[in-house]
Nucleic acid binder design. Structure first.
Lengths: 255, 255
DNA sequence: CGGTAAGTTGATCGAGTTCAAACTTTGTGG
DNA sequence: CCACAAAGTTTGAACTCGATCAACTTACCG
């Protein structure tokens, strides 16, 4: 699908190791295992598709740089954005059980991704219980965010949905240092944002303006600042899933 | 939370083994492993809560009998149903990474559940790559259904949502023999159904009546019949995720 | 500087909600 | 086995939030 194999870069000191080490200590064995799995990184242009529905997936990706979205298109051409992906994410584990991709993956800005073969998951399951637990946990955190999305789509007003997704992005970016002073760069258009929370771009514009007038947020030059996290949190009934993660049960590192 | 420990039943020939064997061949070792994990079954009354948000989860459950739902309540008391659970389901894997449950689990009719300790997952990860792959796959299938739900909530009309969820239930029940002649028992009220697809009970009533008038479904005595699956599928752009599952990559059974 | 993509603002419209009442089904105890 | 209560479903009328359509403004990039 992607014709960018020529854009390969340096055989960089494993993306996967770097990212997964953020969460747990990796043993030498685990690091060696990961190192053998990773290919060299690839670049993708803004709006370039990484894979599409019905692509036979060969690779999963670690995001080294840039934001991406997974989305689906309805018969009438309307779009629903399903998930947002940020630097540090592992993309593709939810499609592992399926013959084909279940959604489209697109870069919303220039990105650098580190591919590793889908078949790696089998190796990890066999060789490292600890990495298995980590991969599983990351997938389940994503799943809990999916469920939160269902909750806001099913029952919340436009303003509440917007407040919620701004907080969700804030929480995720905080993990990898993408936030300072409650301010972060938001490379999504209002179309993107609307497609993520089931609104039109017009409602997004109105809603954000409204939130800004109420002093809950402020915007300038592609940056967003959450000026009153407490009120935003109450307004949208937001829960930071990352704060509740428990990895104490992980199998010990195999030295 | 549940005070039903007195309702324990026979130390039945493992629920877990029975259910997981539906999907793959289990080795003797794997069966022994599962057998040690399982506790005796428990009964739950209609509308009884199995766990609530902020319950410290000790157990996961295999559903032996009856339907359940996971749901959340908003500040204003409105409810969003997140997932439906049927006989044969494994419930609770998505809450493994969290200190507390992320949603409420309730029986919509009298149920029989087979609990096994949450800590079992750690044992499985360490002892059996093949069972690990299975648990992971089941969770990812659920996740893909979550994403489909996001898609219909974000962008679809009332009729389309109803058609979609009726097909989703049909697909799932077909796996475990709950469907004959495209007809199945639907123990959910119109409130439940509405809370699952982001509609009021009134819209559900109108929508179902409309689908029936158009000859797409028919209803009687708690049963639903899908009279025209092709048109329902086209109407709601439905994809049967179970048909796309690929388990060829699973690690070999450890004999 | 000109052209295109993105964001804002206002007017109108409609699908689904809300509220309310009637009707049907189910289950239970006399 | 019937009577009655409780739960669930249907139907109608009025309303509302966000969609749609369209004009306009701003930002960005070659």
């Amino acid at each position: 699908m992607s014709k960018l194999d020529n854009k390969n870069a340096q055989p960089d000191s494993s993306c996967l190791i770097e990212k997964l080490s953020q969460f747990i200590d990796l043993s030498g064995v685990d690091k060696d295992l990961l190192a053998t799995l990773e290919k060299s990184s690839q670049q993708f242009d803004r709006h370039e598709q990484v894979w599409g529905v019905d692509t036979q997936l060969e690779n999963m990706y670690v995001v080294k740089q840039g934001w991406l979205i997974t989305y689906t298109i309805l018969q009438d051409g309307r779009r629903q954005v399903l998930e947002l992906h940020y630097p540090g994410d592992v993309i593709g584990s939810s499609d592992i059980p399926f013959r084909h991709a279940t959604s489209n993956l697109m870069a919303v800005e220039p990105c650098v991704l580190c591919p590793f073969p889908k078949s790696a998951i089998d190796v990890i399951f066999r060789e490292s219980p600890r990495l298995t637990a980590l991969i599983f946990t990351l997938a389940m955190i994503d799943k809990s965010i999916n469920l939160d999305r269902i909750r806001i789509l099913g029952r919340m007003s436009a303003r509440e949905r917007l407040a919620h997704i701004l907080l969700e992005i804030h929480s995720r970016l905080s993990l990898t240092g993408g936030v300072s002073e409650n301010q972060y760069r938001l490379p999504l258009s209002q179309f993107d944002l609307g497609d993520a929370v089931g609104l039109t771009n017009v409602s997004v514009s109105n809603g954000l303006t409204h939130l800004e007038e109420d002093g809950l947020i402020s915007r300038s030059k592609g940056m967003v600042e959450l000026k009153n996290i407490d009120r935003l949190t109450k307004l949208s009934d937001y829960i930071n899933r990352y704060h509740e993660v428990d990895i104490s049960w992980f199998p010990d590192a195999s030295t």
